[in-house]
């Protein structure tokens, strides 16, 4: 952690305090305050356009905050910078899979394993330890045989898995997965679930967005429901899902 940064002893992995984001006149996130507990799986649900992806983008510094502040692993941040994510022990995947397309699968993993500093990167060549780590990750996501292929030539599901593998390579404490299950075949869903359960056993914090309520019920320990940029409900999965306003607003039952 950078010196001179204000720290608090925080029982939560991530807290937001009154954060807002608007695109022109559209308010994507309005004065949102949520808390994500340490360890375990937290899922974020909500109808389309409720600000789920925007929230993940704000937490990972892809979009700048318009107001409010964020506490990540005890560090109080008024502005989240994307390149400081590893310092916070945070990493993510994207809803629309964003790989380095015209680069091999191998290098897609390798690129996040190397040194961040300009000069150390200039002098660094691949070491056996890094090679082993990349191999382990590629074998976990089942892409070891495809390591020389360009990422753009993979199928959609493989791309999604590679992106998850890239996040795993970061060895972070907090993983933000933006719709990791969307568009996957059932056998791949099983694989992603396995990976996420494994992360939970290791004591990591996993936050994921999903539209599939069965998976949400099955996996998550904690649930956050968003509606048009505001918090609708937050808490244990079963409790939240039985709240009348959630049923009314979101599930529409």
């Amino acid at each position: 952690m950078r010196p001179g940064r204000e720290m608090i002893d925080d029982p939560f992995a991530i807290q937001t305090d009154d954060i807002s984001k608007h695109f022109g006149a559209v308010k994507a996130v309005r004065r949102l305050s949520i808390s994500i507990p340490k360890r375990g799986l937290t899922s974020i649900v909500g109808p389309n356009g409720s600000g789920k992806s925007t929230l993940v983008n704000l937490l990972s510094g892809v979009l700048p905050l318009d107001g409010g502040m964020v506490v990540i692993e005890g560090a109080i941040l008024k502005a989240v910078k994307a390149h400081e994510n590893p310092a916070h022990g945070l990493t993510r995947t994207f809803q629309e899979v964003r790989l380095f397309d015209q680069v091999s699968v191998w290098d897609n993993i390798m690129v996040v394993l190397t040194k961040r500093g300009l000069f150390s990167a200039l002098l660094e060549r691949v070491k056996p330890a890094q090679r082993d780590r990349a191999r382990r990750i590629l074998e976990t996501v089942g892409l070891w045989d495809k390591r020389d292929a360009l990422a753009e030539n993979l199928s959609y599901g493989q791309r999604k898995l590679l992106e998850i593998g890239r996040a795993m390579a970061m060895e972070a404490n907090i993983y933000l997965f933006d719709e990791p299950f969307a568009g996957l075949f059932p056998e791949m869903v099983v694989k992603v679930k396995e990976i996420m359960n494994h992360m939970r056993e290791q004591g990591d914090t996993i936050v994921f967005i999903s539209h599939n309520m069965d998976i949400v019920r099955e996996l998550s320990d904690h649930l956050i429901v968003l509606d048009s940029g505001s918090l609708l409900a937050e808490g244990e999965v079963d409790e939240v899902l039985s709240e009348p306003k959630v049923i009314k607003a979101y599930l529409g039952v």
């Binding site: 994510n85 590893p86 190397t114």
Partner: peptide
Amino acid sequence: RVLTAIREDEQAIAVFGY
């Protein structure tokens, strides 16, 4: 390798700490 990643998706590689 980072340069090629910047070429492909600058925002994505920034997320990983560069």
